[in-house]
Amino acid sequence: MNIELRDLRYFEIIAGLGHLGKAAEVLCRSQPALTKCIQRLEGEVGAALFERKGRGLQLTAVGREFQARAAKVRAASDRYLNDMRDFVAGSVGKVRVGCGPITADYLLPIICNLVLGHEPGISLEVTINTNYVLKDLIRQDRLDMIVGVVTGDDEFRHQAFIDDTVVVAAGRHHPIFRRGKVRLEQLPDYKWILPNAMVGSRKWLDDVFLAHDLPRPHAHIETNSLPSIHDVIGSTDLLCFLSRLTLAHPKTRGLLREVRLRETTMVRQLGITYPRGSLMPATARLIELLDRHHPEHIGVVPSEPGLAS
């Protein structure tokens, strides 16, 4: 049927008042205009919807059934249009969030609590991987934003929230802690577990050794998620390069310890990365929440006492 929602609304008012003149006053329309509305509806239905009763109108049997169905159509229409308004306002919808291993532990709980507390109509779809993989997923339109390490490229937009320090670390009983002051040139002699060569922190660490004319650390084990295998690091004689946030996280249970060395202390920023151009409303709303609330929720893990600066 080719029926306009406006005509359904007029029909409901006419049926409720049972009088064409009163309906015209309420709707601020002329009686001839409402008569044409009834005629259009009756033409689509193929039967009379009203019959005369004194100076007013009453519904026919078909009209009563049409009224019940029209009410459902109008209610569904109002509900879906209201949902659309909520969607445009960013209070409903799905946000596809990519997280690095560090931010999955540290920032993701904060994001989830912000959404649940302020916009429970927003749902999250979370993917955990390395930053370079997540950026490729944004390019493929399979992610809306990344919560992780913020880089300086111009391809995406970035907002940094906190500083993060990445250091060389090992299990608490690693032999390196028995030799007193550690020097950079001693580190290539040890076995390492490292991110793969595409990860930014690995590139930075390699460059440090190359700048000092030293061989790069040899990775006996490579992984895309160092924080997830802290038990392996803690139970072996492997050095690693990971965030102090991981060292301070309860899940490490004091297994790991920092190898204090100025040259291998990297400071980076954590925050959000998202595409340039227009965003889905729910994504824009989540970015707004993070921008507004992160100072009161996100703290910086302090440096270990005695670290050379």
Rank of each mutant, 00 (worst) to 15 (best):
D164K: 05
N82W: 05
G98N: 05
R253I: 05
E263A: 11
L107C: 13
L255K: 14
P109A: 06
A89L: 12
N196V: 07
R139E: 03
L194Q: 06
N224G: 13
L242E: 14
H220Q: 12
R178A: 12
I110D: 06
T273M: 10
L184A: 09
G98M: 06
L143G: 03
G121F: 03
T165I: 13
I146E: 11
Q39E: 13
I111P: 03
H212D: 07
R244E: 07
R29I: 00
N129Y: 01
V133G: 01
R85T: 15
G43Q: 13
S243I: 07
R172P: 01
L137S: 11
G148A: 07
A15V: 03
L239K: 00
V182Q: 03
D141F: 00
D237K: 03
A15Y: 06
L242F: 03
R253Q: 14
S123F: 01
E51L: 10
L17K: 15
K191I: 03
L226A: 10
L239P: 12
V62N: 09
A104G: 05
R40T: 08
H249L: 08
D213C: 14
I128D: 11
E155V: 08
V267N: 14
C37P: 11
L81R: 11
I128E: 12
D206Y: 15
I3W: 04
A48V: 09
A219K: 03
A308C: 00
L5M: 15
T35W: 09
C112V: 13
G200I: 07
H230Y: 15
T264P: 08
D206I: 12
N113V: 04
A61C: 11
H173N: 14
F50T: 03
V300P: 01
T60Q: 02
G18A: 12
L34S: 05
G21I: 06
E258V: 12
G93R: 02
I287A: 10
D231K: 10
D207C: 04
D153C: 03
I13T: 13
T236E: 13
T151P: 00
G254F: 06
L290D: 06
I272R: 00
A160I: 04
C28D: 10
A104S: 14
S30C: 00
L184N: 08
Y80P: 00
L17P: 00
M280V: 09
D86H: 13
H173F: 06
L256D: 01
R202Y: 09
S201L: 10
D7T: 02
L59S: 11
V26I: 13
C112A: 10
L107D: 14
C112Q: 13
L255N: 07
H293C: 15
L289Q: 06
E44R: 11
G277M: 11
Q58G: 03
K94L: 09
P281G: 06
S123P: 01
L289C: 15
Q140G: 11
S309D: 04
G43C: 12
D237F: 05
G254Q: 10
L289I: 12
Q140C: 02
A282D: 05
G43I: 09
N196A: 05
T252H: 07
A23F: 12
R157S: 15
L124T: 02
